[in-house]
Design a protein around this nucleic acid. Structure first.
Lengths: 195, 195
DNA sequence: GCCATTCTGTACCAATTGGTTCAGTATTTC
DNA sequence: GAAATACTGAACCAATTGGTACAGAATGGC
């Protein structure tokens, strides 16, 4: 009966996410988004609702993807190696261009904390899901005796996240590998997780 | 001859800074600023040039003030106590409302890195001035034997800043003292500067 | 070919953006 | 009171904002 080819919604969402990720919510205009997504204005409002809801969808996509990556690592690495894997995968094993974008959730928290509490909360919630995953991995490792048991796993996870946040700020100033590599190394040895 | 009372430019600048600090550059509109500064539109353009230059002036004011605070501490505290003094002064010894605003320079870096390189650079430059001050203090303390000499002072300063950045992200999610206090404590003991 | 459907492009909307201009009103010194 | 200055408030500007509506072309199954 009808025309089948819906434009690739997933691809469009991906493109929107990349733009929001790099430029933030407020500074990204609808025309910018449409061009990046490669669709017309009317198509946009047919498949998505508003710019704000598109942003939420992008934020969830980003959070889900990050969590999935970490979960995969948690399945095949000892807990003590998780922070290094996480830092390196997102800061060193990508192009400086991409590393300079930092983390979309962290960017969102800093941009919108006092402007749009709901979006801020959404980002914060996804970040704490990641922190919880770290905490759980540390707890299990301690129970199995794979990790030094003197440190509270929740507090350790919280520190890992704090340093993660710090690195996300650093990379937006200077995304070069030679400046990030020693920083990561020193941070890990600080955490006692350098080996 | 003339009417004397120029409205208080300093006060107006201060008010603008607070608004930019809380809401960022893009999300703060000119009417917002005028209301906060308590001046009329025409007075604004008589005493300032553009919104963008006002922002730069605010950024420099914020950076200068932060640096001055740190310099004062550096004059009367041992270097090893500087990070704690800095973290506590800006995160615990202020209202949660203010703590939740984080650091204007860090906020700027995350908001504008991919949008306005010049403003990003300005903020980054002020941040590195602070880092340099830490490094200098550590170096002097080591030379005087007041601080463990095994760690490179520049690297230590870089770690202090990374953790500082991390705390600035944390406080924009949850500015409550009971969540920040243990985080600061754990961070300092991580740095070996808890005592 | 026919009709349903899904896209594109454009025109349009009201509201808001940052910025300019200017008439009028205070306030000050003489 | 007169002249000089510094303010206010509103009108105005072009450009851009997010969002809507609609005509027409492209694409499918029948």
């Amino acid at each position: 009966m009808a025309r089948s080819p819906e434009f690739d919604r997933g691809k469009a969402l991906e493109a929107a996410m990349k733009l929001f990720w790099a430029r933030g919510y407020t500074a990204t205009s609808l025309p910018d988004l449409l061009q990046a997504m490669g669709i017309a204005r009317s198509s946009f409002y047919a498949s998505f609702s508003t710019k704000r809801e598109l942003f939420m969808e992008c934020l969830e996509l980003f959070g889900e993807r990050t969590l999935a990556m970490l979960e995969e690592d948690a399945g095949k690495l000892p807990a003590a190696a998780l922070p290094r894997a996480f830092y390196e995968a997102t800061l060193l094993d990508v192009s400086p261009r991409r590393a300079s974008q930092g983390c979309m959730m962290v960017n969102t928290v800093l941009e919108l904390a006092d402007v749009d509490p709901e979006l801020n909360q959404l980002a914060a919630q996804r970040l704490s899901a990641i922190e919880n995953l770290f905490a759980l991995a540390f707890e299990n490792a301690q129970r199995r005796g794979e990790l030094d048991g003197t440190q509270d796993p929740k507090e350790l996870a919280s520190l890992v996240m704090t340093i993660n946040f710090g690195l996300r700020v650093q990379c937006r100033q200077n995304p070069s590998r030679q400046s990030l590599k020693p920083l990561i190394e020193n941070s890990l040895s600080l955490l006692g997780l350098a080996a």
